[in-house]
Design a protein around this nucleic acid. Structure first.
Lengths: 111, 111
DNA sequence: ACCTGATATATCAAAATCTGATAATTCGAG
DNA sequence: CTCGAATTATCAGATTTTGATATATCAGGT
């Protein structure tokens, strides 16, 4: 689109990881939670996107946190510094766009 | 992604048309304006997306408004009712997601 | 009239992304 | 120890994006 923008999926995944680390399906269910069921990440998109984001250095795998009794199938991820920066800039952009949407809507109604 | 979501590009295009009709490049420059230059729609994406959105019935071509002295090359478009509904539901979703981002950010800072 | 650069739309092949099915493994409950 | 759910992974096909190319019209200057 232009210089390096997050896809919608990448945006949602990074956001799901912004408060704490999660494993694959944990990310998917967090996204589903905060979109009230509107966004469902199927396995192809979920694991494919995680792989891509890890390759791009926006998130990184963590050693399973000892406290949670480990299910060895799970792979946990957290945001990298670059991932957090990318998320912040995307949040700013979306916030600007949303303001615009509200302004246009207000203009619309008053006409 | 799930049941019928707008792509980012579709979202931006519909938003650009939400206050009034515009022609192709007019849409692109409106998007560029309200994203402060971050989103630039190249010709392939611009005209391809317009075509797709028109086929899906989210926007429709209008007869050139007489008042603007006509450049016969330009093709003008406006939102359809379906397009406006799709935009509104996307705005709602993005607004929910942005609230979540702010909540997570607040939680993050206080830890 | 003529040239030139900007405006405007359109198309296409290649790249990137998304979808949905399939598969393999491990877990937990009964 | 069997069975359904959870978890990750991969792959082919569909959709979307990218960037180049093409064609035509416009506006300005000479």
């Amino acid at each position: 689109m232009a210089t390096h923008h997050l896809t919608k999926t990448a945006y949602y995944i990074l956001l799901a990881l912004s408060d704490r680390e999660r494993h694959g399906l944990g990310i998917a269910s967090e996204v589903e939670r905060f979109t009230e069921g509107e966004i469902v990440l199927g396995p192809g998109l979920l694991y494919g996107s995680i792989k891509r984001l890890a390759e791009e250095g926006l998130l990184e795998e963590t050693e399973a946190v000892d406290s949670e009794q480990a299910d060895p199938r799970r792979r946990y991820y957290r945001l990298s510094a670059a991932g957090r920066a990318a998320l912040q800039s995307e949040v700013l952009l979306q916030s600007r766009i949303l303001s615009e949407a509200q302004a246009k809507n207000a203009a619309q109604e008053s006409s």
